[in-house]
Each structure stands twice: as C-alpha cells, then as structure tokens.
Write a protein that binds this DNA or RNA. Structure first.
Length: 327
DNA sequence: AAAAAACTCAACCGCCCGTAA
DNA sequence: CTTACGGGCGGTTGAGTTTTT
C-alpha cells in the first residue's frame, strides 16, 4: 500500500508549539470538534499537518488530561499491565484515566524500567533476572519484594512461579557445576553456596506472602533429590537453612485457575487484558499427582526459555554419579 | 562556577490497520 | 480486488533541564 508520508510539505511548521497555536487549535476544536484531522489545520488557520495537530491535542491540550507525577497506585497499575500487555501503551493508557499513552511510555522508559532493573527484575519479561549480578543490589531486592507483595494475588502468584523457576534453575545449575568441577569441599562450591545463601535470604520477601498454595508436591521430591545427589548436597542444605526452608515453598506453585481470574472487568477489556495472552501460556497449575519423583520433575516446566531442556534426563544422569565426585 | 553527563518529555517518524471508493 | 486515505500506534529523537563532577 503505497502511502505518501503524512507530512511531505516542507512549508508546514514543525517542532514545539507556540501558545497562540495551542489557542487556535483549542478554539477550533471546542467550536467544531476535530472532524477530519487532515482538514483541520487549514480550517483552524494553522500551518501544521493534521497529524501534528492530532498529537498536540491528544497528548497535551485535551482538557481531561491529568498532569503531574504518577502516583504509587498508577505505578503499580502500569507495572502490572505491562507485565500482561507488554509495550501496548495505548491499551495500558485506557486503564489510567487522564494519562496518555505517550506519557506512560515516557514514564516507563525513564523511571519504571530502571526501577525494575535495580530491583533485579527484567523489565521485558518481568521475571527475576537470571544473571546473578543483581545480587549486588540487595536493598533493591527487598524493595522489589515489598512492591510485588502489594500487587494483586494473581499477578504475584505468577511472578512467584517465575521466581521459583528461576531459583530452581540457579540451584540446579549450581548442582551441575558441583558435579562437573569438584569435590564438595572446594572453594567454588563454597562460593556458590554463599551466593545461594544471599539469594535466598532475599527471596524470602518474595515467598512470604500466603497465597493459598497448592498442596506441596515436593516434599518427597526434595528428600529424594537430596538422597539422589549424594552427601555433599546434604552438606549444602545444612549450611543453608534458609534456603532449605524455602525449598518447598519455591516449588509449591499456586494453584491459580487463570480463566476464572480475569484481570479486569473494565469496559476496555476488549483492549486485550484477557487471559488468552502470554500469561496463559505459562504453566501455572501445580503438577498432577505423580508416581515418581522423576515424573514430577519431568512435569515441571521450570522456565519457558529453557523448556526444551530435559530436566528428568539431567536428574537421571546425576543420579548415576557416585559421590564424592572427583574432577 | 563551569563543564560534562544524565535525565526528561514533547514531538516526530514511519509503519500498520480498517475502511471507503 | 486494488488503491488511497485517515487515524492509531510504538519507537526514536533532540532540545531543554537538572544533577554530578
């Protein structure tokens, strides 16, 4: 569809609007409505393209625009909606009366994005960042925990599942490293251990909110897991009481039925806040009762991005190793 | 006090989609 | 069915402002 540029007339004014231009535009729209934006500039006596007029009106001059700082509630709403809708600024804006998509977009890019990054949350996926650098920022993690705890239960539940998956990944990766590298006593293991200690202390904040957790399917898993991988894992566990205490809850995925928990009943629900979006694609139901520990592990889709990873295979392999492992 | 760096946000650009001719 | 148009959207820019060095 060969569409000519919206503004191919070099004589038309661009750049910041002058107060008198604003006045002309407001006067015209108040008298006649905007009608055809393309025709408006001529009728209103403005040397601008229609598109520029439309933007000026919708983003700045419209009388119902709310200006000033975003409230904490608004911040939370934006974060929640963004986790569901992504960069659908106009859809997000429909849930924040008086705020424009442009304003929300700017606010996100200049404030919220950085805030989430500081908290160790990936602003794109809304998951805990998998690189461990964020652990250098522990105070922000606590803040993150508090913020997330204020979010609605479904949102928080989903996030906790992601956190649980991420932490499970970390734990399993560390296990792999132990297996590959060394005897349990070597320094690398100790360092990893410290790292896990740190991370789990912080994860407490994320995990301490009662969410009507599903019956815990993993007590057996944990003990089997410990037995399976040998004594050094038990050593790690003994040294990491906090971690161990959280282990069960990390795997206790909230039994939330997404289809019965539509996020918003607002009239704008047609803009897409429905559960057929990406959240639904996340496995959030607790695993069904399983006959064996390995089956249970196999049913856990620990992370979307690594869902092709065969955890059961990993566990099977590790279970064949004898301990202590020497490199 | 001055310069540099970082931040903010209004405005623009180009693409896309729905619709009418 | 094709084409052109109107309007909406997300991404990006850059001037102005604020903060840091």
């Amino acid at each position: 569809m060969g569409r000519s540029p919206s503004n191919n007339d070099a004589s038309l004014k661009k750049g910041p609007w002058m107060p008198e231009e604003d006045q002309k535009l407001m006067d015209y729209i108040q008298k006649h409505g905007h009608g055809s934006w393309r025709a408006l500039p001529k009728l209103a006596g403005l040397n601008r393209c229609g598109k520029s007029c439309r933007l000026r009106w919708t983003n700045y001059l419209r009388p119902d625009i709310k200006r000033g700082k975003f409230s904490e509630d608004e911040e939370r709403i934006i974060i929640q909606l963004h986790s569901v809708l992504g960069n659908k600024w106009s859809a997000i804006a429909t849930h924040l009366p008086g705020r424009t998509d442009n304003e929300i977009k700017n606010f996100w890019n200049t404030h919220l994005r950085k805030k989430l990054l500081h908290m160790g949350i990936d602003p794109i996926t809304h998951r805990r960042r998998t690189d461990l650098n964020f652990l250098s920022n522990l105070p922000h993690l606590l803040a993150a925990a508090n913020l997330l705890n204020q979010m609605n239960p479904l949102d928080s539940a989903l996030r906790m599942q992601a956190d649980a998956a991420d932490l499970a990944n970390i734990k399993l990766l560390s296990l792999l490293q132990l297996i590959n590298n060394s005897s349990p006593a070597n320094m690398e293991a100790v360092n990893l251990n410290c790292l896990l200690n740190q991370s789990n202390t912080q994860f407490q904040g994320l995990m301490n909110k009662p969410l009507g957790l599903a019956p815990n399917p993993t007590d057996q898993m944990q003990s089997s897991f410990s037995n399976m991988v040998g004594p050094s894992w038990r050593v790690l566990e003994n040294e990491n009481n906090i971690y161990n205490n959280n282990f069960n809850s990390l795997y206790a995925i909230p039994s939330v039925n997404p289809t019965s928990a539509s996020v918003s009943a607002s009239p704008e629900s047609s803009t897409g806040i429905q559960m057929e979006n990406k959240i639904v694609s996340t496995e959030i139901s607790a695993p069904s009762s399983t006959s064996t520990t390995f089956d249970a592990l196999g049913e856990f889709n620990l992370d979307d991005e690594t869902s092709d990873f065969d955890w059961a295979d990993l566990i099977n392999q590790t279970s064949n190793l004898s301990w202590p492992i020497t490199s």
